[in-house]
Nucleic acid binder design. Sequence first.
RNA 1: GGGCCUGUAGCUCAAUUGGUUAGAGCAGAGCGCUCAUAACGCUUUGGUUGGGGGUUCAAGUCCCUCCGGGCCUACCA
Length: 570
Amino acid sequence: MTRHLITSAIPYINGIKHLGNLVGSQLPADLYARYQRGRGNEVMFLCATDEHGTPAELAAAKAGKPVAEYCAEMHEVQARIAEGFRLSFDHFGRSSSPQNQKLTQHFAGRLAEAGLIREVSEKQVFSNADGRFLPDRYIEGTCPNCGYDKARGDQCENCTKQLDPTDLIDPRSAISGSTDLEVRETKHLYLCQSKMKDQLEEWIDTREGWPILTTSIAKKWLNDGDGLQDRGITRDLDWGVPVKRGEEDWPGMEGKVFYVWFDAPIEYIAAAQEWVDAGKGTDWERWWRTDKGADDVRYTQFMGKDNVPFHTLSFPATILGSGEPWKLVDYVKSFNYLNYDGGQFSTSQGRGVFMDQALEILPADYWRWWLLSHAPESSDSEFTWENFQASVNKDLADVLGNFVSRVTKFCRSKFGEEVPTGGALGAREAQLIADIAAQVRAYEGHMDAIEVRKAAAALRAAWVLGNEYLQDAAPWSTFKENPEQAAAQIRLALNLIPLYAVLSAPFIPDASAALLEAMGVETDGWPADMETALSRLAPGHAFTVPETLFAKITDDQREDWATRFSGLRD
RNA sequence: GGGCCUGUAGCUCAAUUGGUUAGAGCAGAGCGCUCAUAACGCUUUGGUUGGGGGUUCAAGUCCCUCCGGGCCUACCA
């Protein structure tokens, strides 16, 4: 038995995430966690909400609530939706937790002692009307290059020129529109990533089998221009982890907080502490401290491509720089983006289908299946209602759902609602068992390698084997001359159902549970020997014909939804 | 501007890392079956691998160039 630590990139707090966010991190992480649990391995699957930073403050202000209250509410909203999608977190934490606060301050202290933090005095734009420093992209003005009047302080979206906020003509706050801006001197802490460049590069170079997407982004940041740059890890904000050096105050840093991308990954560790403090477990260090049992843990991270630099460079720099025996990630699985019907999903613009809306119109399994079987692994992929309808109807309703329906209903009409007795398995049955065994091995191989789309295809191929067998065996024919033979055939076919349920559970957990319940069995582990697995339902075992597993999506529904989700969310 | 990824059948994707005749699913066509959610099975049509050039006994794969799509570029997270 191996032990798997699995984390999903933590979703930002300022609203409900869309399907593109879901498929890029939480959903494949859940697939892998469920699979490893299914294989009998010990799993710690952690996620959390990422709650600090300027956008959270602004979203709270817009909602007219104190930021702490806003975050607490939104955390509950996201947690509830995650349950709706059956995301099986062992703990869904909060980056604003006391545990994370303390741990973040601890890491900062260790890094400072190791000489990996330096203070930098810099000039930043302060808005008197807003009472806050403004991040570059929250400053708008006229582009000195092309004259575009809504250029942002970091870059002009019209001519793509890189800008400095002080370059802008007639600068104003993007928050309030105020032009009462001034440049102030402020001091910040920088993490000396540049000192760790060689160490990080050697580490990345020795990782094997990482996705191209992951390593190419990491290498780009390591070697682009002057190489890996030091990164500011503090901000002039109210909402965040107060800057401290371990438990000590940090002279000159009063009133400042750590930058979200410093404290957010640390929450992966803190979430395990929260898990203990919530009474769900007793020992988090055996997952995170290599001196306390975590050296045999396999740690896998899931994230969208925009998060790769933080997970391959900044967070490892934090861990390595601490000089303490924290567990480093073993495999970084990254995803491209999912587009929506010819354009991008957009949280800020409200474009696409959001997680809450998705659950309002269809059960989680439909979304899980489509999203995972079309996961954007090799390049960006696209959601269209036509493709969604066709895939779900064919794969879930026709191939799997109808298989279950035809087997159970045939049995009920000829033998009653119990597994029939008599007859013996022949050559065709031996062939089916061998084919299934081979298909399951292929499926396991893809799941072990976290090849999500390939795993989905292999699973579907296993479902197809059942339909092929029925066509060949034709129990409706053999029943006429040799009912005993038909009994043996249908007994084997019935036995495919709990097998499919166990294999399919990582993708479609609700349907799997419904199948097991209908067949009157509990999960009893991953199938090892296929002959044993396919004789689990003994003659005489009672079952019930399940309700329609997957109703088809009609053309009317598809058109209705395509229209409903064609515009922007308010 | 720089860098990275990507372009394969009408659609969504493969191709053991340079090695037989480029494969699946869906859609289309034909046949079969009648247990089943008009479902299932079998057969089949369909490709100058974006264009052009090069290296090689051999190129979807490597190199150059052009065209298209996307992402990143460090203060959104």
